[in-house]
Design a protein around this nucleic acid. Structure first.
Length: 824
RNA sequence: GCCCGAGUGGCGAAACCGGUAAACGCAGAGGACUUAAAAUCCUCAGCCGCAAGGCGUGCGGGUUCGAGCCCCGCCUCGGGCGCCA
């Protein structure tokens, strides 16, 4: 009987479904291991072949760890709130819950079809009220701690579409769809104060076992910089001063003008009557530019003089105050001192506007452009002659002594814009009282359920569709009984995913988000695998929430993911990104139908290193399929042709289930068989630990090739092999395990032991080099001495030729590896 | 511009700590089995060369008895960030 994954796989999946061998037991005595996938957004398109890559990797680790006696938590769930379902609802009127549920059904079916050993009893979905109740609860914890607040924030509002747009939906100041004008208008938005965790988020990266590139990305994103905050007093009619931030206090004597962001609150006050028209016009033009448009014209510096002047407290000069959109309102103080000689942006601006440029750092190059490097201070009063680091310190000290400034740390990280004017998300559990005060919805009234709506269309006022449901919006304050309005904004998609790994520890808890004890047992996640596209979004937000919960005494750890690995991308057969546009999309359903889940799993792991991008190859899939067939044939006896009786229907014999006879025998294995077995145990074990699945599989292939070639099938070798195969191809392995007459589920069998004695080679090939070039080789016993090897090596003809007529000056000998004759 | 990552046969890749470069697989060639084909099995295969031999891990140097691996200087490709003062 041939290898038939279509018969084997559903059989074992049913088994696992009934016997539940993958259930994780909180608090068990065995050491715990928490291995987690980034849970998917269940799109209507179904699983992509990229999903099973990371999921197979974690499944191998989960199955391996169980075999190693660990109590493994390996859960799965759904990141189920989000835009696509809502967009679809706007077009069709079908409730996002309906389409989301369908997508989840489909995803679950596909994941089960791939034989992943999830503990399905812990399945969660972020759009389930029993889950988002606790997302809202955590929001309230943030609110209580002053970490959630409302602020006027500039948003991209498109009056024609009646909605707020995300930055990437705005191109050149116009909406991506329709090309309508978009304005930067202030609207009240919810934000989370992630910036107050910037320092810890940065510092704690050091103790995480994450890819260095990802840590670096987060460091850049947080963007810590040290410098000086200083006040420049205003000259003229308006009193006050302008506070700036600089990382180059040593260049302050070269500050020849100040620049404010056009949105800076001081602008209207300090603008002189003569300049008012120009300034107002410039502000208006800026507000019409989207963030993106502003970034596109990096080099074209524009700006307007406000008419105001300020004192440079260091140089004692009066310098003009300008506004320009190259200064961002959200960073630092929204104002800068411009040092055109030593800052490229200031230089460009000064050249464009004809402003003075004064050198204050000695440069070793010509006078073209700005010199931004370090050097010795010149034209700088009391810091003349000081190298940059000391000059910085001296300026900061002077500023502090004279009360005009102080050293400061700035982060590029912004607070997390947390409101969405959307329907399909968690309602923000806040009430607005008539006097403008905010009231948290009491915890015992959570969840604030998403109401049913008749239309998912934007309201046209920039508010969420929830705002149109009058009887939902209007409620009463539970404390005073006064009328109150509900917050109609919802949370972003990244809310639910910022704590799901905690909920998995205790997914059915209906008194709290998760029990402290359960979290103490399971957390942190020991291995987290997912794409690197979440390097700064999800992974930063999840760290932030974990720290907040930790500070609130609700979570035992302050870092959620101890070890993180990114799987690479699976590209199309043409080497391009898989996309409908290129017509190169591979559907996992098709692959499983044709070759089975085990082939898909083994193939994806065999393609190459987990973390690398790799192109799909249907032919290489065939190769893996052949390997599994060969494995099958190693265990299953050839069906003997029934002589005369077989006449009846040769074609139909495929359909009837003849008895599968086990070909494994009780022969004593030969030494080389045992040697290969133990080498295989060692290699597969080490490779799984190091997530080198591709080389583990190649070793399994070597094993099968060996036993197939020699036609030997000793149980003592083949039984442990099935265990090694199991994490990679669990269905086939279970089937073979049963065929071997085993009673227990393979999924519960312990990992085979490796015996170094049995893995030892009898003879080892030692390479013989002359002057570092390989000229021959000799066979010796392991651990052979230099004398023995050298003597043999000198006999080798090709070696002898190269030693002829030369003097051996030195012999380099590395036991069991090489011997190198250095001659002259 | 800046920051990461990667360059090894026709292709995906392997090579542990600096020690025989190319394991394993795909594609290819030849053979066995077959009436034939498919499947399967066996053999070959980096490049140049009849051979001896030479050349070979993006390029150029260096260190070393010995470099795919370490150091210096480049090149190419992929990804990310972009006026953050």
């Amino acid at each position: 009987m041939p290898y038939q994954p279509q018969r084997i796989e559903p059989k074992w999946q049913r088994f696992w479904e009934e016997k539940r061998p993958f259930r994780a037991e909180t608090g068990a005595a065995a050491p715990k291991y928490y291995v987690l996938d980034m849970f998917p957004y269940p799109s209507s398109a179904g699983l992509h072949v990229g999903h099973p890559e990371g999921y197979t990797a974690t499944d191998i680790v989960a199955r391996y760890r169980r075999a190693r006696g660990f109590n493994v938590l390996h859960p799965m769930g759904w990141d189920a709130f989000g835009l696509p379902a809502e967009q679809y609802a706007i077009q069709t009127g079908i409730h996002p819950r309906v389409t989301t549920m369908q997508a989840i059904e489909n995803f679950r079916r596909q994941l089960k079809m791939l034989g992943f050993s999830y503990d399905w009893e812990r399945e969660i979905s972020t759009c389930d009220p029993s889950y988002y109740r606790w997302t809202q609860y955590i929001f309230l914890k943030l609110f209580e701690r002053g970490l959630a607040y409302q602020r006027e924030e500039l948003v991209n509002f498109c009056p024609a579409l009646g909605t707020v747009l995300a930055n990437d939906e705005v191109i050149d100041g116009k909406s991506e769809r329709g090309g309508h004008p978009v304005y930067r208008i202030p609207m009240k938005q919810w934000l989370l104060r992630i910036t107050s965790y910037a320092e810890r988020l940065l510092r704690d990266l050091d103790r995480l076992d994450w890819p260095e590139s990802t840590k670096e990305l987060q460091r850049n994103w947080i963007g810590r910089s040290e410098g000086l905050r200083a006040r420049f007093p205003l000259r003229g009619p308006v009193a006050g001063d302008i506070e700036i931030f600089t990382t180059r206090p040593d260049t302050i004597f070269g500050a020849t003008y100040l620049v404010l962001a056009p949105e800076h609150p001081l602008v209207t006050r300090i603008t002189t009557p003569e300049q008012r028209a120009a300034v107002e016009d410039y502000i208006r033009r800026t507000s019409q530019k989207s963030e993106l448009a502003r970034q596109e014209q990096v080099r074209d510096k524009t700006g307007v003089f406000t008419g105001a002047w300020a004192l440079n407290p260091f140089s004692g000069e009066d310098i003009p105050v300008w506004i320009a959109d190259y200064v961002l309102p959200g960073y630092g103080t929204g104002a800068i001192m411009a040092v055109p000689a030593h800052d490229e942006r200031d230089y460009d601006f000064a050249r464009a506007m004809g402003l003075p440029i004064r050198r204050v750092v000695e440069a070793h190059q010509g006078d073209e452009g700005a010199y931004t490097g370090e050097g010795v201070a010149i034209n700088s009063g009391f810091i003349n002659g000081l190298p940059t680091p000391q000059a910085k310190a001296a300026v900061i000290r002077w500023a502090e002594e004279h009360g005009i400034g102080h050293s400061a740390v700035q982060y590029r990280l912004r607070d997390w814009l947390f409101s969405r004017q959307r329907y399909w998300g968690e309602p923000i559990p806040i009430l607005h009282l008539s006097d403008g005060a905010l009231r948290a919805v009491p915890e015992d009234q959570l969840p604030v359920l998403l109401p049913e709506v008749s239309s998912y269309e934007p309201t046209g006022t920039g508010q969420s569709p929830l705002a149109a449901i009058a009887d939902w919006v209007h409620t009463v304050d539970p404390v005073t009984g006064q009328p109150a309005r509900r917050e109609t904004d919802t949370m972003p998609g990244s809310a639910g995913s910022s704590w799901y790994f905690l909920r998995f520890c205790d997914p059915h808890n209906d008194r709290e988000p998760f029990g402290m004890e359960a979290a103490r047992y399971w957390m942190p996640v020991d291995l987290y695998i997912g794409g690197d596209e979440h390097a700064v979004g999800h992974l930063l937000y999840a760290r932030f929430w974990t720290k907040v919960l930790y500070d609130a005494g609700l979570c035992p750890v302050d870092e959620p993911f101890q070890r993180l690995v990114h799987q690479g991308m699976i590209l199309g057969e043409d080497g391009q990104k898989m996309s409908k546009r290129f017509g190169n999309v591979i559907n996992p359903d098709d692959v499983v139908r044709k070759y089975g889940a085990d082939t898909l799993r083994v193939y994806e792991m065999f393609m190459g290193p987990l973390e690398r991008d790799k192109p799909w190859s249907t032919q290489a899939v065939e190769g893996v399929y052949r390997f599994l067939q060969r494995t099958w044939r190693l265990f299953v006896a050839e069906q003997e042709q029934e002589p005369a009786a077989g006449e009846k229907d040769p074609a139909g014999s495929q359909g009837q289930e003849g008895p599968v006879r086990c070909a494994v025998d009780e022969e004593e294995p030969r030494p080389e068989d045992l040697r290969l077995l133990h080498k295989t145990i060692r290699k597969v074990t080490e490779d799984i630990e190091a997530l080198r699945f591709n080389t583990a599989i190649s070793q399994l292939m070597v094993f099968v090739n060996h036993f197939t070639r020699h036609g030997r099938r000793p149980r003592r070798c083949l039984r442990p092999f099935v265990q090694l195969l199991h994490p990679f191809a669990p269905h086939l392995a279970e089937e073979l395990w049963e065929l071997l007459g085993e009673r227990e589920l393979l999924a519960r069998a312990p990992w085979p032991d490796f015996d170094p004695q049995l893995a030892r080679d009898e003879l080892i090939t030692v390479a013989v080099q002359v002057l570092g070039k390989t000229r021959g080789q000799v066979e010796v016993e392991p651990g052979a001495s230099q004398q023995e090897v050298e003597q043999l090596a000198r006999q080798v003809p090709t070696v002898r030729n190269h030693l002829e007529g030369r003097t051996v000056r030195k012999v380099v000998f590395v036991p069991d590896r090489i011997i190198n004759f250095v001659v002259s």
